[in-house]
Write a protein that binds this DNA or RNA. Sequence first.
DNA 1: ATTTTTGTTAACCATTTGGTTAAACTATAT
DNA 2: ATATAGTTTAACCAAATGGTTAACAAAAAT
Lengths: 236, 236
Amino acid sequence: MVKIKKDHNAEERILAAAKKVFTTKGMAGARMQDIADEAGINKALVHYYFRDKDKLFEVVFLAEAQKFFPKINSIFNSEVPLFEKIENFVAEYIDEMQENPYLPWFVMNELHRDPDQFMYKIWGEKNLPKPQKLLEQIEKEVKKGTIKRISPIHLLMNLLSMTIFPFVARPMLTRNLRLNETQFKEVMDQRKKKSQNLFLIQSGNSFYEKNTDPLFFSAFSFDGADRATPGITKSL
Amino acid sequence: MVKIKKDHNAEERILAAAKKVFTTKGMAGARMQDIADEAGINKALVHYYFRDKDKLFEVVFLAEAQKFFPKINSIFNSEVPLFEKIENFVAEYIDEMQENPYLPWFVMNELHRDPDQFMYKIWGEKNLPKPQKLLEQIEKEVKKGTIKRISPIHLLMNLLSMTIFPFVARPMLTRNLRLNETQFKEVMDQRKKKSQNLFLIQSGNSFYEKNTDPLFFSAFSFDGADRATPGITKSL
DNA sequence: ATTTTTGTTAACCATTTGGTTAAACTATAT
DNA sequence: ATATAGTTTAACCAAATGGTTAACAAAAAT
């Protein structure tokens, strides 16, 4: 008889609670008592498992951020073609953020608080991202004439911006564009699927002419149907 | 004999100090003592001028955010053509952020902390942004065939992402792309100037073919010269 | 069965922090 | 000169908060 129900595991409960509280209130705004309450246990127990606030934060934060960021390297340094690479990157990141909606905020927050410390924690001394491979590929495609000449800086900026920002600015976007959570998810899924159009046309891809698909389905189409949804259009 | 040197104005010094401290440490992380120290005055004086922390924050924050956000409305609702509108928007925002580098972070932070409260403070009850005009213009251009069909949602998302995100993620970008502050500014100026290419080609602008300019100057060109700067390229 | 280790709690403590007070100082008006 | 109003400060206070302790309970080891 195996005890499947192990949800009274204090340590895990604390971690989950800490994640939630740190994420919503930030490191400075989070209270140890909040975390204890959220986990439904005594405050001292939080200290029992994770010495102090800094340690707890470190555990929570690093666990999340370290699996989030270093993916860049492996994707960008892989041997697949440029376009596939970009597609992989976008898909991977949007998926990750769909599952952990708090993560981009969390990361940006810490990044802003102490950039150097942050970078060190994430990448360590020697493990800094090396976009060399990617830049070479861009340059190669540029020379081949497949894509128009673009500064890799801008291409990268655009790529990161269009992938990450919607999640960072989610509260603003959902509110001002009148999107509910389901619609937001759908919109992001569209971006994932259409990342080729999104990013390559953006960078001046000469495949442009071949592209007969409307960019991101037709306008106003949220629910997958290829027609206008006037309610949303109006209120937008 | 006029006393030009009025830099010992306590109230202004407090405001400037508060802006700095709130921005770097966030509302929860900011200490009244920090602000007093930064302003070089006694802590009680901060309370003398701005009752309590909340009030001070409100003054600082609203002053900044209210001049930052409502510009969207006036630009997007103006009568100028779509492409000009986009150009205005990008230029206006990048300028604003160049001058107030802390602002985007500040805004995103509050936005995340309490979206509803935030939106209310910025736009009030009835002053919500109405992208109607912009959407109509997009739709018109789509129908005219000037730009390919694109969901206004995505066009707007892309526009906002590519304009705002680089400033939000500035610490990460400057560090990972090995840009110093001057270079970052230059890159953003490039984005401002080339917003047409950036955003319209991105949205499938059929003017594409007419565009013989390289997108964002040539690759690796940071210092305005149209040649490679190997140092940066290598280290990138 | 009992000792030991691990997990959990209520009560407590020290420090930090937002905020107050009363006194002093400054400039201006009378 | 002196009163007055505005400005600034050191000292203080109460609440909040991170962290500790000692006692207790549960589980594991002996």
